[in-house]
């Protein structure tokens, strides 16, 4: 009997030093460190900010409308006398919530489809890749709008029906509809890069001779996936996720700006910008505050993403 030596060159998971090296490369990159710091500050603001501000983001003070920035109202107040600083902080919560949930769903869909395509090949592969290419070649903003628009009516009808049937007030919360629509439609356009990435990893690992040999000895797909594909894909995946979070944030604000995202009164940077746009000649701070914070957030993610890319793929990718 000829035996393929199982102890033969089955490479280990990326060694710890690889991650330490990557971390060192990351912290040597000044822009990346700035990006990371800004992302952490924003994440902190999203998590705890709304508890720390002296004003509620919804409380109106009609005696203090359209105030310029001052010490009592750091970013001034809006046309309903609401504190803009509190609203921007709450907007960061909206932005993060949407970005994290959307990216999580997209990664889940993308990696699943990518793994299926890579492992099964053939028809499943062709179908999934066709779908991926199609999704990527449609202008994503328009696609979200279409998905959003076509789901809105049936979903609100369903919620209404549920309310009438159960009288559970949870079905009256239109905020949920917004979030579900925003999450759903954005996730439906955000998964293709992850699918491609995971499929490519699966294919490249499956084609290695030691895997072919080990498969002959009964190495299961699950082991290949957990022992080989995941450790190899994790680096590029981190880079993609960082970029994806930034993109999702911008998308969220774009939809809110267009009025198809998170609706008032829930503060979102996008709808604050669109409100600010109507009065910017008189009260520029109403436009500037959310616009600048949104700009900083996207710059932060793009610095961080670039740094991660350099740190995790030192040979230069793309």
């Amino acid at each position: 009997m000829t035996s393929v030596p199982l102890s033969a060159p089955l490479p280990e998971d990326p060694p710890v030093s690889l991650w330490r090296d990557a971390w060192q490369r990351l912290v040597r990159n000044k822009l990346a460190v700035v990006g990371l710091a800004m992302v952490l500050i924003l994440a902190f603001a999203a998590a705890f900010g709304p508890m720390l501000t002296p004003y509620d983001f919804l409380s109106q003070d009609l005696d203090a409308r359209n105030l310029a920035p001052s010490l009592t109202h750091l970013f001034g107040t809006d046309d309903l006398g609401r504190d803009v600083f509190s609203r921007v902080l709450y907007g960061s919560r909206t932005a993060f919530l949407v970005a994290v949930v959307v990216t999580a769903i997209a990664v889940l869909i993308g990696t699943t489809l990518g793994a299926i395509a890579g492992f099964f090949g053939g028809f499943a592969d062709r179908l999934i890749m066709w779908f991926t290419d199609m999704t990527m070649s449609v202008p994503n903003l328009l696609l979200v709008v279409v998905i959003n628009a076509s789901l809105k009516t049936p979903l609100s009808q369903w919620m209404e029906a549920q309310y009438l049937a159960t009288l559970n007030p949870i079905f009256r919360e239109t905020v949920w509809i917004d979030f579900i629509l925003v999450f759903g439609s954005m996730a439906l356009i955000s998964w293709p890069p992850y699918a491609r990435l995971v499929r490519a990893q699966v294919l490249s690992i499956r084609s290695r001779p030691y895997i072919t040999a080990a498969r002959a000895l009964g190495l299961t797909n699950r082991i290949i996936l957990t022992r080989y594909v995941v450790p190899n894909a994790i680096g590029p995946l981190i880079v993609s996720v960082s970029a994806g979070l930034g993109t999702a944030m911008v998308l969220e604000s774009a939809f809110s700006f267009l009025g198809v995202g998170v609706n008032p009164p829930t503060p979102s940077w996008g709808n604050m910008i669109s409100d600010g746009l109507r009065v910017w000649q008189h009260y520029p701070h109403l436009l500037a505050a959310p616009a600048i914070v949104l700009g900083l957030a996207t710059v932060a993610f793009s610095f961080l993403g670039d740094g991660l890319n350099d740190a995790l793929n030192p040979r230069g990718s793309k």
Partner: peptide, 15 residues
Amino acid sequence: ALFLWAIPPYVAGPL
């Protein structure tokens, strides 16, 4: 370039 990429047109336009 990174900066331009990060500024959405609905922010850049008004500003």
